[in-house]
Nucleic acid binder design. Structure first.
Lengths: 164, 164
DNA sequence: AAAGATTGTTGTTGACGACAACAATTGTCG
DNA sequence: CGACAATTGTTGTCGTCAACAACAATCTTT
């Protein structure tokens, strides 16, 4: 079948081509409905904003949280390894770590095995801070549950498990 | 229950704190697994890239596609209405429309009813182009199906229907 | 008519991904 | 061993994108 389906009916228009709207949100999305990418993008924006808001007091953004979590679970990793695992660019991770190191959450230890690379570790302060971040992140996760439902959230995680 | 779960075991480390890795991707994500936001973000990146690649020949990005689709289905909308419907900022939409108008896909018609606003329409060229874009977008959608499965894609759309 | 709100526009800021270049170091291979 | 290639962290540039703020022109309200 060809993809060009029925055009959703253009609404009542006045002579020149302007359209009267009751102001409400009854604008057709047409082909956009049925596009997974569109739904995912809107959802991702919502999630992102809720995360930033929930972790607003501690000033931690999703990417920072992911970096801290991976370092916490795998102390001693190189920057290259962290970048590859999280799908972040080397160059980008440099700035992220600069920021986290300034805040005394992470330290770069010069590796003796390979003097090019840095072994990444949480500071003591970073470890306790991460524990707090995790509690807040769990709160955010409950917000997601409240938004889409407990079972739907689990379904979602199962469907997307391959992308982690 | 408190959210701070079991720490995933830090691996074998050498004296100074560096960690040997077989080089493979067996780095623990710890708390990241179980975060809907992380999975969604990775998935969104994959979808975005596939969309851009599939619509690469016609040089159309997801946001441009969404704008064209909405205008095509609702001719005469104002920029404000389109922006609000798609969750784009007014300011951002200005640049998007500048580009689409330069490419002769969209035209801004000065509305006589409200001389502040522009009524947005597809050009004839824009309409035929959009038909082609929709075919390519459908191809992209089949790629998504191939990636996560037909039923999973439908489940996903159902779960996220509220965000469109 | 005056005050306030809306629409499109311009500009700035900061997060982010994609690249390219570089020095220091390591690995490889003749 | 020694030249050459590859890797690691770093710096820088470019383009995309969201979030704001400010502005002129134009409604809308009172």
């Amino acid at each position: 079948m060809t993809a060009s389906a029925a055009q959703t009916s253009p609404r009542k228009r006045s002579g020149n081509g302007a359209v009267r709207r009751n102001d409400a949100e009854e604008i057709g999305l047409d082909a956009l409905v049925g596009h997974a990418g569109y739904a995912v993008r809107r959802f991702q924006i919502w999630i992102f904003q809720d995360f930033v808001r929930t972790l607003g007091d501690v000033d931690i953004r999703p990417t920072q949280y992911s970096v801290l979590t991976v370092i916490g679970a795998n102390p001693g990793l190189s920057q290259m390894a962290v970048a590859k695992r999280l799908g972040i660019e080397r160059a980008r991770l440099v700035h992220l770590l600069d920021s986290l190191e300034q805040r005394k959450l992470v330290k770069r230890v010069k590796s003796k095995a390979d003097r090019r690379s840095h072994a990444l570790h949480l500071t003591a302060q970073g470890a306790t801070a991460l524990a707090k971040f995790k509690r807040l992140a769990a709160e955010h996760e409950r917000n997601v549950e409240a938004k889409i439902g407990k079972e739907n959230r689990e379904r979602l995680l199962r469907i997307l498990a391959g992308f982690t």
